[in-house]
Nucleic acid binder design. Structure first.
Lengths: 134, 134
DNA sequence: CATTTAATTAGAATTATTCCAAACAACTTG
DNA sequence: CAAGTTGTTTGGAATAATTCTAATTAAATG
C-alpha cells in the first residue's frame, strides 16, 4: 500500500499544493538524503524558494528531518515516516537509515539529566568500512 | 587538578601557539557552547580566521565537537573532554551536556545495521521545560 | 464562484564560513 | 642558540547556502 501523500499533508493542516505533493512524494519514494539543491535539480519546476519553504514546513510538522553534520556542510533532508537514526560513512558520505535501537532509555536519560520533556532527538553515527585499506 | 592545555595540544601533534592556548583554554573553562563569533567576541585578540582554523583543527583531533541543529542555524562548539551528548531546550536555546547514558548498545546497533566501524557519534535531544505554561 | 487565506515565485539580500597570499612564530637541528 | 623549516596567523576578499521581500497565484471554504 503506497503512502497517501495528500492525506499526510492534510493530517498536518498543510494545504495540498502541486509543489508539496511533488516534493514530499519525491522524498517518500527516494532513499537518497538530498539537499535542497539536489531536490531542485530533480524537480526543477519547483522554485528553489519553494523548496526551502516547503522543507521548512515539513520539518516543522515532523514529516521530514534535517540531517546536519555531513562533510559537505549542507543540510540534507529525509522523510520521517518512522522514527529512525542516521549512520554516515565518512569515507563515501553515504547516509543510511536505521531503526534497530530503542531510544526510550536515551530519552529517559535526557529527562533525568535536565528535567526537560524530551520532544525530539537527532542521532548521527559516523563510521568507516572496516574492509577499507587503512 | 586543572587541565594541562599545552599537553592536550601536544598529545595531538598540534603546535602550542598563543592563540590555541587561549581558545582551547576558553572552551575548557566555560560551560557555554559558543559559536565562532561568540568566541571571537570574548577573545578579540585572535582573528576570526584563526578562530575558525583553530576550531577546525581541534574538531579534527577530537578535542572539540560541533553542535549543529540549534535554532540559530550556527555551529556551536564544545570541549570534548569526556564523551557526552547534548540536550537543547528549544524554548530557551540553552544547551546542556549529559553523560548518563551508555552509548555502546547504540554504536553496536549502528554497526549491525551497516557493517561499518562506528568511529564517532552525535546525539542531540530536544526538550522543553514541563513547567512552562503551554 | 466569490472570497479569504495561504503558497509560490524571481531575484535581491544576508551572512556564516572558507579562501588567499603574505607575514610571522613555533619547533628542530647542527 | 642561530638558522632553517614548517606550520600558523592574519585581514580582507570571495563564496554560497539560506533567508527575505513584495507581487502573483492557487487552494480551500461555504
Amino acid at each position: 500500500m503506497a503512502i497517501d501523500i495528500p492525506a499526510l499533508l492534510q493530517k498536518h493542516s498543510l494545504k495540498v499544493t502541486q509543489q508539496r505533493l511533488a516534493l514530499l512524494g519525491y522524498l517518500v519514494t527516494h532513499e537518497t538524503h538530498p539537499t535542497a539543491e539536489m531536490i531542485h535539480a530533480e524537480l526543477p519546476e519547483i522554485s528553489l524558494a519553494t523548496i526551502y519553504n516547503t522543507l521548512d514546513k515539513l520539518v516543522e510538522v515532523g514529516l521530514v528531518v534535517i540531517i546536519e553534520g555531513t562533510a559537505d556542510g549542507k543540510r540534507h533532508y529525509d522523510f520521517y515516516g518512522e522514527p529512525h537514526y542516521h549512520i554516515i560513512n565518512t569515507k563515501t558520505q553515504e547516509i543510511f537509515d536505521a531503526n534497530n535501537f530503542d531510544v526510550q532509555p536515551l530519552l529517559q536519560a535526557g529527562r533525568e539529566a535536565t528535567g526537560l520533556d524530551i520532544t525530539d532527538y537527532h542521532i548521527e553515527l559516523y563510521g568507516v568500512d572496516p574492509d577499507d585499506a587503512k
